[in-house]
């Protein structure tokens, strides 16, 4: 899709591959412990509640609220220089875990704790899709 993609790309592991595969299919998949059902994110091999290594995956609702945010103005990485400023939001998902991603609409002045957002997807390069947030209507 884009031969000169200069941003960092993830290196999926056996634990995280279903998450990245899910994003590519425009589905937000998170881990759920197969033994006790507790949701967890980002992907990790063991359930910290019951220590089960058995994982199941659930599709998240993509609904969330703002937990915090930052707007970056300094070019820490050449690949993002043309995107500045980047408004990154920390989102409490309805499933009880969080996600950090860029907010694609709305300005920093309009944000407040608890503001409702929806998670959407952006296909950034061949096979790589990243989550983004949009203010909920």
């Amino acid at each position: 899709m884009n031969a000169a993609y200069e941003k960092p790309v993830p290196e999926p592991t056996a634990d995280s591959q279903p998450y990245w595969d899910g994003l590519a299919a425009h589905r937000l998949m998170i881990q759920s412990c197969a033994a006790c059902g507790q949701a967890r994110h980002y992907p990790q091999p063991m359930c910290p509640a019951c220590h089960s290594l058995e994982v199941s995956w659930i599709e998240a609702s993509r609904r969330g609220t703002l937990h915090s945010w930052t707007e970056t103005h300094h070019p820490f990485h050449a690949g993002f220089k043309d995107d500045l400023p980047i408004l990154l939001v920390t989102v409490d998902l309805a499933e009880g875990v969080r996600l950090q991603c860029p907010l694609r609409d709305g300005s920093i002045g309009a944000l407040s704790l608890g503001r409702a957002v929806d998670i959407d997807f952006e296909d950034v390069t061949d096979g790589l899709t990243l989550p983004v947030a949009r203010l909920a209507p």
Partner: peptide, 8 residues
């Protein structure tokens, strides 16, 4: 590195 750096 895996989950947040790709988003900036």
């Amino acid at each position: 590195g895996e989950f947040e750096m790709p988003s900036g």
